[in-house]
Every structure is written in C-alpha cells, then in structure tokens.
Amino acid sequence: MIRKATPADAEQIAPLLLTIWKDMELPILEADSEEAILATLQEGIAVPDYRYGYNRMHVFEEKGEIAGVVAGYPGEDEPIIDEPWQVLAKRNKLNYTFPVFTEKETFPGEWYLDSIVTDSRFRGKGIGTQLLEALPEIARSEGEKLIGLSCDKANPKAKKLYQRQGFVATSEIVLSGHLYDHMQKRI
C-alpha cells in the first residue's frame, strides 16, 4: 500500500535514503559516521520543509514494514529544502555541516523526483514501478503538470524503467561528480 510518510516512519526510511547517498558517493560519508548521519536523517524526516521531510515523501508499506520510499517536491522549493539540514548537522555535532547537496537539480515548472529506493529485501516485486506509477497523482496534488528526475548514466537499468513509465531524457547534468540524464514526463 502506498501512503504519505509520517514522522514515525523515520527509523525505517533513513537507512533507505542513506543507500542513495552511498551510491552518489557524497562527501559527507567521508566526514561522519553512518550512525551519526542516520540519526540526523531520522531527525530531519520530522522537519516538514526539509528535502526529506515526511510531507515530501510517500512510502510503500507491506505488512507494517517500509518496503520503498519516494521523495520529491515542486522545483520552486529547491532553494529552501536543504536549509534545515545545516541546523540539524550543527545540532548533532556532525563534522560536515555544509549543505549535502549543492548543485541545482530541478528545472522550471516541474515536480522533481528527488529519490526513489526499494529496500533490498523487497526488490524484484514491482514496488519501484508502483511508486513511479503513483507520481502523476502526487505531482498533480501539488499543482504540477511535469515530473522531472535525474538518472545516473551508470544505471541503464533505471533509465529503461523510467522510459517505460514515459520519461524522456531532456538534458545532462552533473551531480556530486556523476553524470546524469535529466528526464521529464508531462502529466
């Protein structure tokens, strides 16, 4: 079942988000322990305006467990979504108190799919596809008519999944030193 995330989901969501951060090879991973990063991410999920605030996420729940999560926001929110992280990082005494994300990811007029991840125990069951299929309704509920996302060029399997869902590559961008296809889907 897909539903809006709640602050109570933070303990299960944070490790899933950390999986993505590891794939992106973010610099924070060299500066702080996974334990400290996870604790800060969990706290951040309770902050509504944060990039990964519960109100910006939907989860796929199966038998009381979070099997997958999707996080996104209207592109116009991008300038403010990471401000809470710096406060949380300082409060939790992280060494890396800089913004975790510095590059502009969104394009004008789009709802941006920031993150999508399935727990490794639930992969291969179509959960990622179901989360992707829910995106048009999520984006429309926020007044958007265009969905954007960034797909790592090193992940052709993901690109094929996005293409099957109607996304087309519109440009290339670099995020954390990795080359991505920026893809969009009109809804």
Results as ranks from 00 to 15, higher is better:
Tyr50Gln: 09
Asn55Lys: 14
Met57Leu: 15
Met57Trp: 02
His58Thr: 04
His58Gly: 00
Val59Glu: 02
Phe60Gly: 00
Glu61Arg: 06
Glu61Gly: 08
Glu62Lys: 13
Lys63His: 11
Lys63Val: 07
Gly64Glu: 10
Glu65Asp: 10
Ile66Ser: 01
Ala67Phe: 02
Val69Ile: 11
Val69Leu: 06
Ala71Gly: 11
Gly72Phe: 01
Tyr73Gln: 04
Gly75Met: 07
Glu78Val: 10
Pro79Trp: 05
Ile80Asp: 07
Ile81His: 00
Asp82Asn: 12
Asp82His: 11
Pro84Asn: 09
Gln86Ser: 09
Val87Asp: 07
Leu88Ala: 12
Lys90Asn: 04
Lys93Leu: 12
Asn95Met: 02
Asn95Ser: 08
Tyr96Gly: 04
Thr97Gln: 13
Thr97Asn: 03
Thr97Arg: 01
Val100Ala: 08
Glu103Leu: 14
Phe107His: 15
Pro108Thr: 14
Trp111Gly: 01
Leu113Asp: 09
Leu113Tyr: 08
Ser115Arg: 08
Val117Met: 06
Thr118Met: 06
Asp119Arg: 05
Arg121Met: 06
Arg123Ser: 05
Arg123His: 07
Lys125Phe: 04
Lys125Asp: 00
Lys125Ile: 03
Lys125Leu: 10
Lys125Trp: 05
Gly126Leu: 10
Ile127Val: 12
Thr129Ile: 05
Leu132Thr: 00
Leu132Pro: 00
Glu133Trp: 11
Ala134Glu: 13
Pro136Asp: 13
Glu137Arg: 15
Glu137Leu: 15
Glu137Asn: 15
Ile138Ala: 06
Ala139Trp: 01
